[in-house]
Simulated scan of single mutants.
Amino acid sequence: MKIAVVILNWNGQKLLKQFLPSIVDFSSKEATVYVADNASTDDSIAFVTKNFPSVKIVKNEQNGGYAKGYNDALSKINADIYCLLNSDIEVSKNWLTPIIDVFKKEAQTAIIQPKILDYKNKSKFEYAGAGGGFIDFYGYPYCRGRVFNTIETDKGQYNDTTKIFWASGACLFIRASVYKEINGLDEDYFAHQEEIDLCWRVQNIGYDIKYVGTSNVYHIGGATLQETNPEKTYLNFRNSLLNIVKNVPKKWFLFVVFMRLLFDGIAGIKFLLELRPVHTLAIIKAHISFYKNFNKFLNKRKKLQKKQTYYIHTSIVWQYFILLRKRFETLK
């Protein structure tokens, strides 16, 4: 089984210098390590070539974001399993072994995510992925170990191997054959939540998404776009709406779209009350882009097979903000 660990890079020499050593040290026996460069203008490639001769370089002609960046790079890489790995992740010894074992034993498992912990506080889960992702009835993503901004301490409570709904794009393993079958990531997302769409489509054609808690990685998070960056707010709100249009089953479609637009309006008011008007403007911008792309995504929707059940908990917003259930294990 050929494994390709592929790190997407854009002007990230500082991150590569910090994190590439652990990836090379703890991956080279089981995998080939690649840096897929999104037309960087810094000295990233020269740095990797000089200091890590075993790492292969794939050069993209433009910075197409996360989705196009990986689609372009992976089309040039021959492997059985792709690992899409952020450049701000430190991996641990033997991190690949339990994941490879699951792929070998379970032909129906197409995507795997390891446990993602906070690099800055390794006893805590990290926001982007934590102990595996889920989605509620209204399309809100959340994780075991992270519901909205409440992040749990890792006490071994998620050291299991289990089905999840989505795997984090910070560290996502996928069978190359399945990636090609579904035509990879949707490039219209550019960045943020495209991995949720990917996982949704993979499940709709009959494959499983798994979390393997015996493999640990440590993520800085926000190295590309900080949580306080309104561009991140824009992409998250827009792409979450696009996920709904593209993937929610027909019988719930109109209701879920209407409710999400309503919830987004409430979020915009909340940002105003918090004196963060740039984020309210980001939501308005996200909705304008959503309306512009609505017909395009309706056409994408028509080509996809959709499951009839996709959520675990009815409303995370209700449970978290009204019932004050802050931890995954308390959700009902």
Rank of each mutant, 00 (worst) to 15 (best):
K104N: 10
A36N: 04
Q319W: 06
G131R: 02
T309L: 08
F255V: 12
F328G: 04
L8P: 01
L84S: 06
K307A: 15
F258V: 00
E90W: 00
I99P: 04
T224L: 11
F258I: 00
S75E: 14
Q157W: 13
A73K: 04
N293C: 09
L15F: 15
I45Q: 13
Q203L: 04
G213P: 10
V256E: 04
R175E: 09
A31F: 05
T309N: 14
L15W: 15
K163C: 12
S28T: 13
Q305P: 06
R276C: 09
P141A: 11
A170P: 09
L254F: 11
C83N: 12
I220M: 12
N229R: 14
S28F: 06
N38T: 01
G213I: 11
D160T: 12
S215F: 10
G65S: 06
E195G: 05
I244T: 04
R276S: 15
G132E: 08
P249L: 05
N159I: 00
S215Q: 14
V248E: 01
W10F: 14
T162W: 03
N239M: 08
A79V: 06
I112V: 15
N236G: 10
G65W: 03
Q113A: 10
Q305N: 15
I3S: 01
L96P: 00
S40R: 06
L198D: 03
R325F: 09
I89A: 03
S54W: 07
E274D: 14
K124C: 04
K29G: 00
F294C: 10
L96Y: 01
A176P: 01
F47I: 07
I209N: 04
T41H: 08
G156T: 11
Y291Q: 14
L281Y: 05
V245S: 05
A67N: 12
D80G: 12
K76C: 00
G139C: 12
F263M: 13
Q319M: 06
S75T: 10
L198P: 03
K300P: 01
A286D: 05
H287D: 07
I77D: 07
E227C: 00
V35M: 02
R144L: 08
N60S: 11
K250V: 13
S177G: 08
E106W: 00
I174H: 05
N51S: 03
K59E: 12
L331T: 13
R301K: 10
K232N: 15
S54T: 13
F321I: 07
A39V: 05
A73W: 02
H219S: 13
D43I: 00
P114N: 10
N295F: 12
Q157I: 09
K115L: 14
E61F: 00
L323D: 00
R175F: 05
D197M: 02
Y189A: 10
D136H: 02
N247F: 05
K68V: 04
N159K: 08
N71C: 05
K105S: 14
W318L: 14
E181H: 03
H219P: 15
F321S: 04
K270D: 14
G129H: 11
A167I: 01
Q108A: 09
L172Y: 07
R144P: 01
L16K: 05
T228L: 08
D42R: 11
A39I: 09
C199Q: 03
T32M: 09
V257Y: 04
V6L: 09
